[in-house]
Design a binder for these strands. Sequence first.
DNA 1: ATGACTTATTAACCTAGGTTAATTCCTTCT
DNA 2: AGAAGGAATTAACCTAGGTTAATAAGTCAT
Lengths: 197, 197
Amino acid sequence: MDRIQLQNSFEAYFNEWGYEIDWQRLTVPMDVHVIRKGDYLFRQGDAANRLYFLHSGLVRYVSVSDEGKEFTQTFAKSPRIIGSTKAMVTGSTVLFGIQALEDCMVSSYPWQAFYAQMRHDIGFLECYAKFLERIFMTKEERENAFVKHSAERRYLDFCMTYPELKNTIPQQQIASYIGITPVALSRIRQKLKLGHR
Amino acid sequence: MDRIQLQNSFEAYFNEWGYEIDWQRLTVPMDVHVIRKGDYLFRQGDAANRLYFLHSGLVRYVSVSDEGKEFTQTFAKSPRIIGSTKAMVTGSTVLFGIQALEDCMVSSYPWQAFYAQMRHDIGFLECYAKFLERIFMTKEERENAFVKHSAERRYLDFCMTYPELKNTIPQQQIASYIGITPVALSRIRQKLKLGHR
DNA sequence: ATGACTTATTAACCTAGGTTAATTCCTTCT
DNA sequence: AGAAGGAATTAACCTAGGTTAATAAGTCAT
């Protein structure tokens, strides 16, 4: 894929949401990133105030606690906008890294400049709001899950939500997504297996 | 406060964010709600697809689990937009109730009609996006806290974030906000008290 | 195939927080 | 002031999940 194609597929993604967007406004130069499986698009603590678009591949958002434990916040599959809303909006450094779980093709724009141009376009703003609504609802569900559901239930929910990931990514990553240790996940799987006899 | 004043203070809240908003577009009729301490603006399961504005008072968002346990998602102090983004956006019923912790004055608009008129105004869309960014970041922080921090740490964080609530609301509500039982919170407070000798 | 490394399982033990219930403390109402 | 209902504390016990460590099972490079 060359740069023009990337640009087009980025624009097409937005346009699919059914709003008219005037892409002529956009003159900010696009960057292209190719990331190999296992590598990072950016790491926790970086100043990643860019808007990233994942053209192909699969990533996870991973943040490390003070005690050095990994925690997976999100799995994101192409095509999708990725990045840190907080870092973009506040200019702070980013609180998680983005790691490729498959080889990935990503393009990006510096958010400040991108937004400065696109904020004058109604269609774009509506899309952006839709995007924010969506990621907000996802977080809200997750908050709910952590407080109301057991680890077993969260695992079952994960299997429903990401059936294709269940067998393709390492279990430690699933465990870190549902907020438990790999050991605990193994126990839960064992228990479920026995239950199904 | 009469209806005109409520309308004005709602508009002023948005305008404070520094965007120009054309309120002439808005012809949807506003409702006014007076809620006594302890009463609910709406309850879990209602079709609360309205945009609410809290003019005065303090509320909490409370959702009840399948096992009948209460869980406080958010404390919100006036002046502020309140309501369920999910119910507004998707038309689904609402997954939490809003309870007044003090006597409250609230106004509201039906979201569909409100948005249909205001979506043509760039200033409004920018404000709406800012609002969504903000509530998203709040949820993200909370997700982080639940996975990475102990209940004790979450309690201390609560005390930092809401110093004024710490002594004015019942401890059970604090406990339900940080995701533990009142008994566990009491234990933690006891432990902290001893530590400070 | 062999060794080297990573991932998953299992077991033994530990701890934070849940559960139940009794006790004390506060409000509020009359 | 006294009664009554809720709020907080404390204690005893229980359980989900963490921790450590040993074993087994994959994965990969040579």
